[in-house]
Each structure stands twice: as structure tokens, then as C-alpha cells.
Simulated scan of single mutants.
Amino acid sequence: MKSLLFASTLAVMLPSLGAADGSDPKPWTHQNFDADPGKFTFAIHADLTGGERPGIFATAMAQLNLLRPDFVISVGDLIEGGEIQRDQFEAEWEAYDNRVRSFPGPIFYVGGNHDLSTDLSREVWAERYGPTYYHFRYKNVLFLVLDTEDTSPADRVEIAKARAKAIMIYQSDGPEAFAQTEYANLAHRTAGTIGDDQRNYFLEAIEHNTDVRWTFLFLHKPAWQHRVKTPFASIEAALSERPYTVFNGHVQAYGHEVRNGRDYVQLATTGGEQFPDLGLSEDHVTLVTMTNTGPNIANLMLSGIRDKTGAIPRDGGDLCFSVERCGDDQ
């Protein structure tokens, strides 16, 4: 700003150096700064479980501290979870909480199947964090956080039984046999479940927030991939007359599709197990800049976010951010 003031003063003091019509040459393009009060940025981190690779997520948090978005939100699978005891759940959540605590802005949690698939895991979540689905507004933008593990207690028991059996088959007979199991072919495993109460909650939230300029949805599993109409279809229908963007995780390979004329973005990993056979499977964070004309979405690979010394924080130069390129033994 001081340089611009100096240049303006100089032009006034030495008018003979500029054009007579006031169109003086200047060493800048214009003075319309990209600083609208409605502009903001937030970051999204992807799955870090399914066999978390050490060091990756801690490095990502250090990098987010360099980027300093207004807040960070996830797409679920924040802990390994699964069929474990209460004290293990508590310890895993405490570890995640400690790792995100260094970020100066808010961190918004989204639950995945590792986080919310059992009665016990949901009980622990409720005690620590309250609701598994919720919404909030920020700078006239609506954020919807969904729970794709919203099954009945009876269904959770049956899914757990099918999963345990499928894992035994995987361990004894390999992935091809696993692919033929009941669990591997469950619609819930791929696209999750959203119950009627949750649908009604979001329909009400959408109805009460008609004045927002954009809506973002965050969910772990791609709920729109069911072959039959589900409660999520009602949420999409309620948003059909307004602009929105959807982010999900779960597959742990990056994807993008245009559905209903809107962007549906699937994040890959931020430390979780990678599956390069499914597509781009590399550690990254997503930076979203909200503007007056809509969001700009940039995917930042962890291997390229460096500090002022030119190094990846927390000795990240020794880490493997893409198993496909550097091998899963690093």
C-alpha cells in the first residue's frame, strides 16, 4: 500500500511525466483488489484411515497452518475404529483431537464408517461431539454435514456380521473371493444410508435458509449411487433450484463428476490407505475459495506444500505421499 501511495504522490508531483488526459502509465494492472468482504477460504482433508500411514496427517496439519484457511472440514474416517473396545475408541479420538488442536481456526468433524458404524462408536461420538449430522452458516453460505452411517441398530448388527465374515474370506481366499461376499455387494457399503429423520432435518434446514448464496454438502459415502430412490434424493431435489457443491470421501481415490449440473467432488487421502487402481490416489488437501460467482476448488498435493525454507514441514521430505510412485514400503 505504501508503494501505491508513493507512486500516486510522485505522479501528482511530476505531472509532466504522465499523459495530459490523466491516463498515466503505471507498473500495475489496476487497483481493483480481490478483497470482497464475502470472500473466504476453507480447507478439506480426506480419509486418513483404513491403515493410516505414519506422519502424513501430522504433516498435513502443519501445512494447513501455513495456508491458514478460515476453517477446516473433513469427509470422514478420522479414526481406525471398527470392532474395538471403548477405551480404544477414546484413545483414537483423543489422538485425532490432539493432532488437529494446533490449527487456529475451527475444525468441523464429519463421521465415516470407521467412526460411526457400531452402536458403541456412535455412543462415544455422541458423548464427545454430540450430533452426527448438523448444519451451519458462514458469510451467507450454508454448510450441510451428513451422516451416511445412519442405519438402524438391527441393521448395524447384520452389517457387522456380514463384514466379519467377509474379512475372514478376504484373509483366507483373497480379494476376488471377498468381492463375491454378501458384505462386498451391500448397497450400504458403497453408498451408505441416510434415514428419514436425517432427511427431514436437512429439508427443514434448506427451507429455513433460502437466502444463502451457496450450499456445500459434506458426507463420507457417495449417497447418490444407490440404484433406488433414497432420502438423499429428496435432499438433492430440495436443492435443485439453488447452486450447491458436494464433497465426499470413502473410496480413497480422487474423482469428479457433474450431476444435476453441480460439482460432486470425491477426495482421495490425507494419510489413509491408497488404491491407485481406482484412480488418482495421493495425499492432498482441498482448498476452496468462495467468491461472489461461486467456489474455486484447488487440490493441493502434500508433496508440494512447503514452508519458507523450501522444505515440507515436519521432515515431510522423507514421507511417501503417493504409494503408486514411491512404493508402500516407504
Rank of each mutant, 00 (worst) to 15 (best):
E236Q: 15
H208E: 15
T210I: 08
H226Q: 11
V212M: 02
K221F: 08
H226V: 09
T215K: 02
I206C: 02
N209G: 06
N209C: 02
R213Y: 08
W224C: 02
I206K: 04
T210H: 10
L217C: 10
R227V: 06
F232A: 05
K221E: 09
P231C: 04
L219R: 07
W224V: 03
T215D: 03
H220F: 08
F218W: 06
E236V: 14
W224L: 07
A237E: 15
T210Q: 12
H208K: 15
T230I: 09
D211E: 04
A233H: 15
D211V: 08
F232I: 14
A233R: 11
W214D: 03
V228F: 12
A233L: 14
R227I: 08
L217I: 14
H226L: 13
F216D: 00
T210V: 09
W224Q: 05
H226E: 09
V228T: 15
R213D: 07
H208A: 15
P222S: 05
F216P: 04
F216V: 11
V212P: 04
F232S: 00
E207Y: 07
T230Y: 05
F232R: 10
I206R: 00
F232H: 03
W214I: 04
P231S: 06
T215G: 03
K229N: 12
N209A: 00
W224K: 07
V212H: 05
A237V: 03
S234K: 12
F218P: 05
W214R: 05
W214S: 04
L217R: 00
H208N: 15
K229D: 11
V212N: 02
L217N: 01
V228D: 12
F232C: 05
P222C: 06
V228E: 15
H220Q: 09
D211Y: 02
H220C: 07
E207F: 03
L219E: 06
H208L: 14
P231V: 10
I206Q: 01
A233C: 14
W214P: 00
E207Q: 10
E236F: 10
H226W: 14
F218K: 04
P231Y: 06
D211L: 07
A233D: 11
I206M: 02
H226N: 13
E207L: 08
H226C: 09
T215V: 02
H226G: 06
V212R: 00
L219D: 02
A233K: 12
D211N: 10
W214A: 06
A237M: 12
V212K: 01
H220E: 06
P231F: 07
I235T: 01
A223V: 12
V212C: 01
K229L: 11
W214Y: 12
E207I: 04
E207P: 04
T230A: 05
T215Q: 01
Q225W: 09
L217F: 03
I206G: 03
H226A: 13
H220M: 11
A237I: 08
H208F: 10
T210D: 09
